[in-house]
Amino acid sequence: MYEPIRSKSVHSIAGARADFPHRSREEELDIQLAGHLAALLAVTDELRALAPDAGLDTAAERLAAQVARLRGGALPARAVAVPAPGPVDRARSAALHRRAHALAGRALVVAASRADTAAAILSAECMDAHAAAAGEPRVPAPLQVSAG
């Protein structure tokens, strides 16, 4: 009816090889969280160039420290914040704040799944700041009442 498989599966061969790269779930989450925070840092640097602000400078430094911690001390690539000449483009600024809000939300989800309190707090603070800067109303979380 059918011919039996004569060779080993690619997956079983890879599992037997010692040189095959293996990462734990925690390592994968660290990589993913560092990527989200690095993307958030890039958008923050872009916002700093568009409209310099001390709060953005502080957030950028905190983000860079978290990315370096997750990458084993390797500092993230940074854009030089050179103020843009002329008036601030409000539409572009609002779009960047919305993008930063979305990136901070992604980072928050990953930070929560790996129980990284420092990164979760920073991500939540960034979400609040970018939502306020984009002019979006903050929706309070519904109350959770437990039975018992």
Rank of each mutant, 00 (worst) to 15 (best):
R62S: 15
L63S: 05
L63V: 04
A64Q: 08
V67F: 04
V67G: 01
A68M: 08
A68S: 15
R69E: 08
L70S: 01
L70W: 02
R71C: 05
R71P: 00
G72M: 08
G73H: 03
A74Q: 14
A74R: 10
L75M: 06
L75T: 04
P76T: 11
P76Q: 11
A77F: 04
R78M: 11
R78G: 08
A79N: 04
A79Q: 11
A79K: 06
A79L: 06
V80D: 09
A81L: 01
A81M: 03
V82L: 10
V82F: 04
P83I: 14
P83Q: 15
P83W: 15
P85T: 14
P85F: 14
P85C: 14
G86I: 11
P87C: 12
D89E: 06
D89T: 05
D89I: 06
D89S: 06
R90E: 11
A91V: 14
R92H: 09
S93G: 07
S93L: 09
A94N: 14
A95Q: 13
L96S: 07
L96W: 07
L96N: 07
L96D: 12
H97G: 02
H97A: 12
H97I: 02
R98I: 05
R98K: 12
R99Q: 11
R99E: 11
A100T: 05
A100R: 01
H101G: 03
H101W: 05
H101T: 04
A102M: 06
A102H: 06
A104Y: 02
A104P: 01
A104R: 01
G105S: 07
R106M: 12
R106S: 13
A107K: 02
A107T: 06
V109Q: 09
V109S: 11
V110Y: 04
V110L: 07
V110H: 02
A111D: 01
A111P: 00
A112C: 13
A112D: 15
A112R: 13
S113A: 09
S113W: 01
R114D: 00
